[in-house]
Design a protein around this nucleic acid. Structure first.
Length: 600
RNA sequence: GGCCUCGUAGUUCAAUGGAUAGAAUAGAAGUUUCCUAAACUUUAGAUGCAGGUUCGAUUCCUGCCGAGGCUACCA
């Protein structure tokens, strides 16, 4: 539809002003609600071409389109705004072309052109010393949704994560467990593995702070005390032993990590995210170290007197960066270099490598990409940091050591509980089995949470109030889910009545309700929105779109009698339009990783 | 100090340089005779401040004020 109009405007410029304006260069925008029309064309920039005022230009173009384009039934011009009113015929045609019964995949609007490109999308990538929290939820939902969006746009997508399983943080948990753990295990305590390990991370911090306080009391400066606290020294010693593969340390490390992985697995499953390939820092840091040593030999990097290895990025205005400590151990950057190289070796055909990581690490990734480039990897250009804003609480930033984090497992559980309360109040689970009801609560709670976190532009930092943020009314996941469930109810009824949606006589439908026009137009925007979302790596585009669609449907639902309609073809059309809307909603919610219920 | 984000209704979010700045929520008033009121309708309410570019600025530029992040031999 849109391309028809663009062609028409292009032709009009040729016919009226003998001016070349490629159809692709015609910019159309949606007509504002207060004016009649569907598409609006701005004539301000073309006053020079037409040698007339914007309003006259609009009138001339409008008249030409009305005469020569069947789709344009009428027009109106306000200042430089040419509003085009579509003919009802053309809109019915547009619907007929989009609707293909229940077989959505074969519908032209939803058809996907497979591109021969592989995109690697990284997300989650937690440390293994503590459980996942609210920040990880935004990360996982965002990365997973972007992967789905790219997949739906025709790319081959590989979902990966780097598991930060080595380093000083896990040594802290290990040390604390050794000293204070009394042999506790997830089995012995009934505590989920990731939470148990997290408990000892907190215990370490407590002991560390206590030691600092004691040293300061003995007269040491707090700055020095932070470095000299014996328990920290012991953790650093443990890291060295780990890198030397000391059997006792290594075995404890394997045990505690396995607890954490079992815990993460449960959480991911509940979140509805998964991965195609996992990378472990304990493997990649070795590659990173080798490549750094190679770079050192080639003179890309340099060594300081104390033996530490650095890269000089002052030419890129990025300062110097440490790559290997003087004791030879690796830092975060070292392993990230190795991870990137491994990924490229695993997927040499990749055209993009997306890192879903918070905006606090923007500097880190600028440095990483600059280093990869300096090492001569042409694919460094294909690396992209999908940065997103932090999730803040009303009292400020979440701090895991101060216990102000919102735990992912707790939050998901609470969401489902709220969904249950709400559903019970409304008395909507007649005929549900216990199992179906529980499933529904989980779908609704998770839908509310995912939608809440995804509807905001990723770049923005956002506020999460645990007690107020998640609603089930208005611009929310459950609102969209409810709209879907309502339509499914209609389609079930139509099935019972043996209504045939495939052989609708569209030529008998001569008039359309305003809400029907809006819906047809809205559904037609799907592929445009999908591409925009892919281009911007922004699920928020999809969330806004599907909300508008659902809202439009609810208006239709309230204003149009769907079954109670004398004209059989019209009735069938109402149902078909409902069915196509439901299909579109399901598809969009799928892009966000949100399930839709058949009943609620 | 330097670099990077961001300041929109009471609150949480929208707005490729375009019309009278959209939603949701909280507030006020309504809607239940096909289909699910987790819905629909009406109403009131906002661009931090000061300049500049433009026919036109929430959007681009400059300065100021305010919030956050980065600037680790943490990850």
């Amino acid at each position: 539809m849109e391309s028809q109009i663009k062609e028409g405007i292009s032709a009009a410029f040729q016919a009226l002003y003998t001016h070349d304006l490629a159809a692709d260069d015609v910019a159309l925008q949606p007509t504002r609600k207060d004016f009649e029309g569907t598409y609006t064309f701005l004539t301000f920039p073309f006053a020079r071409v037409s040698k007339k005022g914007p309003e006259d230009t609009g009138n001339e173009l409008g008249e030409y389109l009305k005469q020569n384009l069947a789709a344009v039934a009428d027009y109106n011009t306000v200042k430089g705004f040419l509003n085009l009113v579509l003919s009802e015929n053309s809109q019915v045609d547009q619907f007929a072309a989009m609707f293909n019964g229940t077989d959505i995949a074969s519908s032209p609007v939803f058809k996907v052109e497979r591109k021969n490109k592989t995109v690697v999308v990284e997300y989650s990538s937690p440390n293994t010393n503590k459980p996942l929290h609210l920040g990880h939820l935004r990360n996982n939902f965002l990365g997973n949704s972007v992967a789905r969006i790219l997949e739906a746009s025709g790319h081959k997508v590989v979902k990966v994560q780097i598991i930060n399983d080595r380093g000083i943080h896990i040594c802290k948990s290990m040390l604390a467990w050794q000293r204070f753990g009394n042999g506790e295990t997830p089995e012995s305590t009934g505590i989920k593995g990731d939470h148990l390990v997290g408990k000892y991370y907190v215990a370490f911090d407590k002991a560390y702070k206590k030691e600092i306080a004691e040293l300061v009391a003995e007269g040491m400066s707090s700055e020095l005390a932070e470095k000299e606290a014996p328990i920290l020294k012991a953790a650093q010693e443990m890291l060295k032993k780990w890198e030397a593969k000391d059997p006792e340390v290594y075995s404890l490390w394997e045990t505690m990590n396995s607890w954490v992985y079992a815990g993460f697995e449960t959480t991911y499953k509940r979140m509805g995210v998964d991965f195609d390939k996992l990378y472990y820092e304990s493997n990649t840091y070795l590659i990173g170290r080798d490549r750094v040593m190679e770079g050192l030999e080639k003179g890309v990097f340099f060594k300081k007197e104390d033996g530490s290895v650095w890269v000089d990025l002052t030419d890129e205005k990025l300062d110097q960066k440490l790559l290997l400590r003087k004791d030879g151990t690796s830092v975060y950057m070292t392993q990230d270099i190795g991870t990137a190289i491994m990924r490229y070796e695993d997927y040499p055909e990749l055209s993009q490598l997306i890192y879903t990581v918070g905006n606090e690490q923007e500097h880190h990734f600028r440095v990483l990409f600059a280093i990869l480039k300096k090492l001569g990897y042409s694919w460094a250009e294909a690396c992209y940091h999908l940065s997103y804003g932090m999730v803040d609480l009303p009292e400020g930033k979440m701090k895991s050591r101060e216990g102000t984090v919102v735990d992912a497992d707790d939050l998901m559980r609470e969401m489902a509980a709220t969904a249950k309360d709400r559903t019970m109040e409304l008395g909507k689970i007649d005929g549900f089995t216990e199992e179906q009801a529980e499933k529904l609560y989980s779908v609704l709670g998770l839908g509310a949470l995912k939608y809440f976190l995804l509807k905001v532009d990723p770049l923005r930092r956002m506020l999460f109030n645990p007690h107020e943020s998640i609603e089930f009314q208005g611009n929310t996941g459950p609102f969209v889910q409810y709209t879907y469930a309502r339509i499914r109810s209609i389609v079930r009824k139509a099935d019972q009545l043996n209504i045939d949606l495939v052989t609708i006589q569209y030529e008998q439908i001569e008039t359309l309700h305003e809400t029907e026009k809006d819906l047809i137009h809205g559904i037609g925007l799907y592929s445009e929105k999908l591409h925009l979302a892919a281009e911007k790596s922004s699920p928020a585009v999809i969330a806004q779109y599907v909300y508008d669609l659902a809202k439009g449907y609810n208006r239709f639902y309230a204003e149009v009698k769907i079954f109670d309609e004398g004209d059989t073809e019209k009735r069938n059309f109402h149902i078909a339009l409902s069915a196509l809307t439901a299909q579109t909603i399901k598809l969009c919610m799928g892009l966000l990783g949100i399930d839709v219920p058949e009943r609620m």
